[in-house]
Write a protein that binds this DNA or RNA. Structure first.
Length: 458
RNA sequence: GUCCCCAUCGUCUAGCCCGGUUAGGACACCACCCUUUCACGGUGAGAACCGGGGUUCGAAUCCCCGUGGGGACGCCA
């Protein structure tokens, strides 16, 4: 059997969204699973709506997701060029073939594809105009996901606009022939178009590729499929918010596909090994941001220390959390991030979660203050803690824990009686990382200064 | 309106092809446990076969019809 050749064929008319990413991913997975070739082809025949900016968004997003292409812009290949705007000669050549065989004709300045069969004029109520219907044989496609689908294509359609540019149906088929595409994996919104494509393949005398129409991704709230304008629809949004691409890829792979058992979190190599077209679902899936967030957390939690610190550093950089010259010492930043890693759900929480580590100018949460200061005798506990801190060993969590348990035992109290006001005094909040880690990383000098400052306000 | 696709917990889904399950898992939600807070983690609860007809000893599973959802009907892609 010949090598699988699949293509992802976006048009640069807007930001790259979840649905496109999933289509790209399934094509990529199928190529990697079969040892085939993944081709990126830019469908930019609509000059009015294309832009270089959106083209770069496509490259950036695919690269970020790790969906590398074997042939296409930037990497080349034997079937280029890979931008349709650079392939006009080929399209004219193919048009000549249809003209020569009598399967294309001009009308109203445009070129139409001619269906074979008996013709009749019919008034279309829905479109409010008279159209020419052609009595044709049904086009049959043997879809790898949906099975046999039959549809009658009964009207000639435009293949070249009156401005001289070819339309999608035409270029799509011509390029699939020219690039020797074996499997067309695309969204179900194209299923109805497929009969047009099948007729074109046949008119060119070319073999019809296998089709696999994947279900659509529906918006999380309200009716209809997800579009670029919907909440959470854009890939670049997740990139900006510090999501891990491997988490997004894992989540996306599970939207409309599953390995056939309970496994969800899987390394990409495992997904590639298990992915296949028959495993793809037939029904549409609703996008669930919460499940994606959970997947992202799971990936974040298992990052090795240095990798996590690096991710955090890049995120802080991109968000410009610190002024150019205002970065904390690398070791201190590292300690703070590692202390926070097990506590956060996403990188985007990090700047707010760690703010008080990097500045003395933080606000004290009034709610936390009321809650903690209104119970027992926190001031007395803080005074005791302050005195104990003076001689305490800050070199390890264990040493600090020993200090605190000793202090609590001496006064017949629980460690919580010290921890709650202590945390509030040095961080202004009642949520945060482990208390001993908090003290250790802040260091004795900061802890003492902040405790004194806090004591002076009560 | 015409044509095409689809239908299991709120959501993603396993089971369907090759009829016999206490219909399983995950996210979300709730309770409890762990615990210095918040998370994580653990345990448990609630939660589904769209409806109606067939076929069959037996239907989530096979067939038909409804209904519902989605898509396509451009000189957009």
């Amino acid at each position: 059997m010949s090598q699988v050749r699949v293509r992802f064929a976006p048009s640069p008319t807007g930001f790259f969204h979840i649905g496109s990413a999933r289509t790209a991913l399934f094509n990529w997975l199928y190529a990697r699973h079969t040892g085939g070739v993944f081709i990126l082809r830019i469908e930019d025949t609509d000059k009015e709506r294309n832009s270089e900016e959106f083209l770069n968004v496509i490259y950036d997003s695919l690269t970020w997701l790790g969906l590398n292409w074997d042939e296409g812009p930037k990497v080349g290949g034997n079937f280029g060029p890979y931008r349709q705007s650079e392939r006009s000669d080929l399209y004219k050549e193919y048009l000549q073939k249809l003209m020569a065989s009598g399967r294309a004709y001009e009308k109203d300045g445009a070129v139409w594809f001619k269906l074979l069969g008996e013709r009749s004029e019919v008034f279309d109520e829905h479109r409010k105009k008279t159209v020419t219907k052609v009595k044709t044989e049904p086009s049959v496609i043997d879809d790898k996901i949906r099975g046999r689908v039959e549809r009658v294509e009964d009207e000639d359609f435009v293949i070249f606009r009156s401005d001289g540019n070819p339309v999608f149906h035409f270029v799509n088929v011509v390029d699939d022939i020219a690039m020797k595409i074996t499997h067309v994996i695309r969204g179900e919104d194209h299923l109805s178009n497929t009969s047009k494509h099948v007729e074109l393949f046949k008119a060119f005398g070319a073999p019809v590729p296998s089709f696999a129409h994947i279900p659509l991704i529906l918006k999380q709230n309200g009716p209809g499929k997800m579009s670029k304008r919907d909440q959470g629809a854009l890939i670049e949004e997740y990139q900006r918010r510090g999501y891990l691409p491997e988490a997004l890829v894992n989540f996306l792979s599970l939207l409309g596909w599953n390995p056939g058992d309970d496994r969800e979190k899987m390394p990409i190599a495992e997904i590639i090994r298990l992915f296949d077209l028959p495993g793809v679902n037939q029904s549409n899936a609703r996008f669930d941001e919460k499940k994606l967030a959970h997947m992202n957390m799971a990936y974040l939690l298992e990052q090795p220390a240095e990798a996590f610190v690096e991710l955090a550093r890049k995120f802080f950089e991109k968000q410009s959390v610190f002024a150019a010259g205002g970065w904390p010492a690398a070791d201190y930043f590292r300690d703070v991030m590692l202390l926070s890693q097990p506590k956060i759900k996403g990188l985007e929480e990090l700047p707010a979660y760690t703010k008080y580590f990097f500045t003395d100018d933080y606000a004290t949460d009034p709610k936390a203050r009321d809650k903690i200061m209104g119970k027992g005798d926190p001031k007395a506990r803080l005074l005791e803690l302050r005195d104990a801190v003076k001689t305490a060993d800050f070199s390890s969590d264990a040493a600090l824990e020993q200090m605190l348990t000793g202090l609590a035992a001496k006064h017949g109290l629980g460690v919580g009686d010290y921890i709650h006001p202590g945390r509030l005094a040095v961080s202004g909040t009642n949520v945060g990382p482990t208390f001993y880690g908090l003290f250790r990383v802040l260091g004795k000098a900061r802890v003492e200064a902040r405790m004194e400052r806090f004591l002076s306000t009560i």
